[in-house]
Design a protein around this nucleic acid. Sequence first.
DNA 1: ATCTTAACGCGACAGTTGTTGCATTAACGA
DNA 2: TCGTTAATGCAACAACTGTCGCGTTAAGAT
Lengths: 203, 203
Amino acid sequence: MNEPTAPARRPGGRTAEVRRRVLAATRDLLVERGFDALGIDAVAERCGVHRTTVYRRWHDVGGLLADVLAQAAGDDWTPPDTGSLAGDLVALNREVHSALTTGPPITGALIAASFRSARAAEALRAFWDDRYARCAVIVERAARRAEIPGRTDPRRLLVAATAPLYHELVLLRAPFTAGQAETAAHDTAAGARAGAFTVPGPA
Amino acid sequence: MNEPTAPARRPGGRTAEVRRRVLAATRDLLVERGFDALGIDAVAERCGVHRTTVYRRWHDVGGLLADVLAQAAGDDWTPPDTGSLAGDLVALNREVHSALTTGPPITGALIAASFRSARAAEALRAFWDDRYARCAVIVERAARRAEIPGRTDPRRLLVAATAPLYHELVLLRAPFTAGQAETAAHDTAAGARAGAFTVPGPA
DNA sequence: ATCTTAACGCGACAGTTGTTGCATTAACGA
DNA sequence: TCGTTAATGCAACAACTGTCGCGTTAAGAT
């Protein structure tokens, strides 16, 4: 993949500085004026880098956001650990809800951009895959505590818990409170305890 | 609402004919060349209506798709009735899966357009609200058959069953088979039988 | 210190999107 | 039949998007 994150060819001072300024301008512009105001020209003009340079390195708005996300995705985030499956899922859904409703709408912007830019779509996929992989431990812990069957599929359970949030907030743009997000977590935990999300096979 | 569907002011032969031709061209172009090729100019040129006219009546691609969907939403669709909750949900998810993966990608196109056009977003919301309302009968029948508690919230259950499909196919763009869609339906049915999706209160 | 060349700056360009003012057509009412 | 006027056609326009060729700068190597 042609990572704009790691050109690696000539990571000199100027190139790195350009990237820093461009990504900072992207974030600021997104926070201050929203996704609709986010354009290559606006970003370039704001940070004093030439349009052509931005186009050559990031190609489109989706590429910019993908790079912003790539910076943020390399963090040390770990899923909540409250001692119970329901507690973990509630805490997780509260985080997702917060990410979708408060602060810089990076997630929302990236979803919107993912429909126009293959780069953005791929970055989003990678980000979520990473997050779901990290969260698998929630399900494994619950299985070890014998809260749920040992052959419960982590990803299926986690998607079941979080998908309603994305569905209501992103796709339906319906008012969805943090309380409803918690309810979705409890519903999923109840289903898992009853044996949903299990895979066929031995043991 | 300023319905382009029903101008009602002068529904004369020419105006109606223009709408018919524009919407037909929109559908055809979407089927033949996909969402990316869908532009006001392309639609206008294809059906011999002037660009300005399309811009004035539909404003953007989202407006066109919203009108196309409005035509399709007034149909006589009814949710499946197989005799069991799991069977109904499986059949429903098969339909959703088919709508998202085969045939004219109207749903997918409208989701993409909903991030650019308020009209498209509103049309999509109205469409899904209508669909979920119609599907409530699935849950009511299951409750009458005593498959699930009587105080099960239809919408919450239905969203839980279908949201994973949209999440995987639309947001994550992951390969999601019809079999996985059926699994999501079974998971939801199992959870509902165990008492998930119930609302507090009497009875 | 000097060379090489990747990255950047610059101007020009074509294509798309969406708007505006004005002329023309034709639907509806009288 | 005839007048009113909504709807359309038309051309020009600004703004944005993305690309290209070429000259300049400066990072990394010798």
